[in-house]
Design a protein around this nucleic acid. Structure first.
Lengths: 145, 145
DNA sequence: TTACGTGCAAATAATTTGCAGTCCC
DNA sequence: GGGACTGCAAATTATTTGCACGTAA
């Protein structure tokens, strides 16, 4: 287990691997965006937010490519679409099993660690359907607000 | 219980009352739309869906008014906005405490009777915030689909 | 009467798409 | 080299808004 030659620590390398594994060609833009999204733990981003972050990081990428990339990553299972409020789409780095606080009016999303919420019983799906995923959104408001 | 003089049964009358109670003038359009929305049990509609239904029912109303009315009803607490998929807004007749099945790809929403799902523990909100509402979305996919 | 509502069309916002040029394998 | 990818701008889709006219209190 020790001294193995794998270089897990290199985020760029990891991202390339990850992209290849899901069948996406690791291009400059995808690798850079993947690095922004995956190298810093869980993220919740909208296209606009990711675009601004990319600008700040001097990553040369167009807004259209941001949209396309977010969709491709989502289709590939690297991201999950978060339905927070209609009108704007958010994406969540797709770790298994956690839910979200959403702050009303502000557009902030905060992870709820998986264990802090628990469903006792899952409902029976209608005939011919199976459960793909369960989303729990806990909407918050400012006290006194 | 029997032969009481209240006329609970008259949907139009009920809707007028209801609108007045939340401070909305019971105009022709609002009463008609309220009737469509509230007289038939729980509903999940998008603006487009409500508009088409109104057309079928020969209710003279413009799409802009549908949007305005849905927003006004929501602000007044008669409806609740449902975050299903970004891109399109759905509204839910705001009964207390139930959750939703959402069928992937199709845009269908089905109520989960309140009792069929149960949260054991609610997570602790961050300092200064309180829980306004909990939404549970159970996403379904066709078996074998 | 008079402020509030409604309809229409134009405006805005978010996202997608077509196509010419660029880059990875 | 050749097909996959990107950027730009134009197109599409969902929703909101401004303003003249209609209508409930």
């Amino acid at each position: 287990m020790e001294g193995a030659p794998t270089r897990q620590g290199c985020p760029f390398h990891d991202v390339r691997q990850r992209l290849r594994r899901v069948g996406l060609r690791p291009t400059r833009q995808r690798v850079s965006l993947g690095w922004v999204l995956f190298a810093k733990g869980d993220r919740h981003v909208s296209a606009e937010m990711l675009f601004e972050e990319a600008m700040r990081e001097r990553i040369p990428v167009s807004l259209a490519t941001i949209y396309n990339t977010l969709r491709q990553f989502t289709d590939a299972g690297l991201l999950r679409e978060l339905a927070i409020d209609a009108g704007k789409t958010y994406f969540d780095t797709a770790s298994d099993d956690h839910h979200h606080f959403v702050i009303e009016d502000e557009n902030r999303v905060i992870d709820i660690p998986g264990r802090e919420i628990e469903l006792t019983t899952l409902p029976t799906p209608p005939e011919g359907y199976e459960i793909a995923h369960v989303d729990v959104l806990v909407r918050l408001r400012k006290i006194g607000g």
